[in-house]
Simulated scan of single mutants.
Amino acid sequence: MRLDKPEKLLSGWPESRNRKWRDAAQQSVGALKTLLDGDATSAVATAYTTADDKYTIVVSGVSGTVPNPTAALDRIFATLPRLSEVEPTRPGPMGGEARCGRGEDQGVWVNTCAWADDHSIGIVAFIGFPQTGDPDDMFVRARSQIEHPVT
């Protein structure tokens, strides 16, 4: 698998210029690399936002050898204690395991989904979306735009 940063995400969301979100994505990539057996073969770390900056999606992921995808997801969500209602979700066409959880950070709703399979691990965080929103479909779409088979 190969992870790439699309120029635009979902329905044409441009990459965010907000350094806070992009730095957060970079920090997540560093943590994700520790879950690999060996070096990462590719990585993505960035954020996307709507034109009005109302909603943000932070994306981070690495590809390489993942020795235990279930344990990797357990460790990811153990580091995100503010999340609740963590439940399995559809991983999308690339397979593996995926979970999503929701929480609140300083009055802002955050829905976080993560996936892990034998060849990649990633996190997609939806920031500022309505509490009633369901990130599962957007997660599958975002992952499909980020992760590609190596040809």
Rank of each mutant, 00 (worst) to 15 (best):
G64F: 04
Y48F: 14
T41V: 15
M1D: 13
G12R: 06
I123R: 12
G103I: 00
R17M: 08
D23P: 00
D74Q: 13
G107L: 01
M94L: 09
I127S: 03
P14V: 06
R19S: 07
L83I: 00
D105P: 00
D23E: 14
R143S: 09
T50R: 11
R19Q: 14
R102C: 02
K54R: 15
L36A: 09
A98R: 03
G12M: 07
C113M: 01
K8N: 13
W109V: 06
S11W: 15
P67V: 05
V62Q: 14
G92E: 04
G122E: 05
P69Q: 03
G12F: 07
P135A: 15
R99N: 12
R143C: 00
R102Y: 08
P14Y: 04
G101E: 04
V110F: 10
V150L: 14
D4I: 14
D4M: 10
D37E: 11
D74G: 05
A45D: 04
P93A: 05
Q26I: 11
W13E: 08
C113T: 06
A45R: 01
V58K: 05
R99D: 06
A43C: 06
S84R: 10
I146H: 05
P69Y: 02
G12P: 05
S16N: 10
T70D: 15
G64W: 07
W21D: 08
T50F: 12
A40R: 11
D23G: 04
F129H: 12
A72H: 06
L10W: 08
V110G: 00
A45P: 07
P67T: 03
R2M: 14
G61W: 07
E97N: 11
I121F: 06
T46I: 01
S84W: 06
R82G: 13
E147Q: 15
L83N: 03
D136C: 11
I121W: 02
R75P: 01
L83W: 00
A43W: 05
V29G: 06
A51P: 06
N111W: 06
S63H: 10
A71Q: 13
V108W: 01
T79F: 10
L73S: 04
A24I: 08
V150Q: 11
T41D: 09
P81Q: 07
V124N: 11
L73Q: 06
A40I: 08
F139G: 02
T70C: 10
E15M: 09
A40T: 11
A45E: 04
G92K: 08
Q27D: 15
P135R: 09
A45K: 00
T41Y: 07
E97D: 13
M94Q: 13
A72T: 15
L73I: 03
T41G: 11
P69S: 01
A71T: 07
H119M: 05
I123K: 03
T65Q: 08
A25I: 05
L10C: 10
M94A: 14
M138D: 13
E15S: 14
A116H: 03
P67G: 09
S42D: 12
V150P: 01
M138E: 04
K20S: 07
P149H: 15
G122C: 02
W13H: 07
C113Y: 05
E7M: 07
W13L: 15
E104L: 12
T151V: 15
T50Y: 12
G96H: 03
P135K: 11
S60E: 07
T89P: 00
E7I: 13
T41I: 12
S84L: 04
V108E: 04
K5P: 08
T56H: 12
G133F: 13
A25P: 08
T34M: 08
